Each structure stands twice: as C-alpha cells, then as structure tokens.
Amino acid sequence: MNKYKTTLLITLISLTTPLIALADDPMPGEFGGGDDSNPTDAPIDTNLWVLLVVGCLYVGYKLYKKKRYSVDSV
C-alpha cells in the first residue's frame, strides 16, 4: 500500500508542477520581467567559452583517470 501512495504522490507532484510554474507572469524588475534596468545580470552568453573549456578539461580528466585505473588493474 505504501508503494501505491508514493507512486500517487510522485504522479500528482509531477502533474501539478507545470501549473505552478506558469501560474503568474513575472513582475517588472524580476528576472525575465518587463522593464529590466540592468539586462546583463547573468551574462552567460559572453563567457560561454570558459564554461566549455572547463567542461572539456573535466571530461578529459575523468576519462584519463578511468583509463589509468583500468590499465593498472589488468
């Protein structure tokens, strides 16, 4: 019975979350709102290359580490 309650709760939450998210338009001055006095609050598009380089370095490090451990153990 507890499994059914959990499944029902997860289903209800996942169905009602979009309704809560779309319930109200943002007020002017809020993020994404009408008249924003400072449109560069989160300038991720100007420094996106930094994020890409850091991500590539992290993935390369993880692959190198995985390859090193798999070769050493064989």
Rank of each mutant, 00 (worst) to 15 (best):
Lys67Leu: 14
Leu15Tyr: 04
Leu51Phe: 14
Tyr69His: 04
Tyr4Glu: 03
Asn2Arg: 01
Tyr64Pro: 11
Ala42Gln: 12
Lys65Phe: 10
Asp72His: 09
Thr16Ile: 07
Leu57His: 09
Leu9Gln: 00
Lys67Cys: 03
Gly55Val: 14
Asn47Ser: 12
Gly55Ser: 11
Asp41Met: 13
Asn38Trp: 14
Val54His: 00
Met27Glu: 09
Gly60Thr: 06
Lys62Tyr: 04
Leu8Ser: 11
Ile10His: 03
Thr40Ser: 11
Glu30Ser: 15
Asn38Ile: 14
Ser14Met: 01
Ala23Glu: 09
Ile20Met: 12
Lys67Pro: 05
Ser70Ile: 13
Gly60Leu: 01
Thr40Asp: 14
Val50Leu: 00
Arg68Tyr: 09
Gly55Cys: 01
Thr40Leu: 12
Lys3Gly: 05
Ile13Asn: 01
Leu22Phe: 06
Ser14Gly: 05
Ile20Ala: 08
Lys65Tyr: 02
Asn38Val: 15
Thr40His: 11
Glu30Gly: 04
Asn47Gly: 05
Asp72Lys: 15
Tyr61Val: 05
Pro43Trp: 00
Thr11Ala: 12
Thr40Tyr: 08
Gly33Leu: 11
Asp35Phe: 15
Thr11Asp: 00
Asn2Trp: 09
Pro26Asn: 00
Ser14Asp: 05
Gly34His: 05
Lys5Pro: 02
Pro28Cys: 13
Trp49Glu: 04
Pro18Glu: 03
Leu19Asp: 02
Leu57Gln: 04
Leu22Pro: 12
Lys5Ile: 15
Leu12Cys: 08
Val53Glu: 01
Lys5Phe: 06
Val50Phe: 10
Ser73Lys: 12
Glu30Cys: 05
Pro39Ile: 08
Trp49Met: 13
Val54Met: 01
Ser14Cys: 13
Lys65Trp: 07
Lys5Ser: 12
Gly55Pro: 08
Ser37Met: 12
Ile13Val: 06
Tyr69Ser: 11
Asp24Cys: 08
Asn38Glu: 15
Lys67Gln: 10
Ile20Tyr: 13
Asp35Val: 15
Tyr64Lys: 07
Asp72Gln: 14
Thr46Cys: 04
Tyr58Leu: 12
Glu30Val: 14
Leu57Thr: 07
Ile44Met: 10
Pro39Lys: 06
Ile10Tyr: 01
Tyr69Lys: 14
Lys5Met: 11
Asp36Trp: 03
Val50Ser: 11
Met27Lys: 15
Asn2His: 02
Thr46Tyr: 13
Pro28Met: 07
Leu52Gln: 09
Tyr58Gln: 13
Val74Met: 01
Tyr64Gly: 12
Asp45Glu: 10
Pro18Asp: 03
Tyr4Lys: 03
Tyr61Ser: 06
Ile10Trp: 02
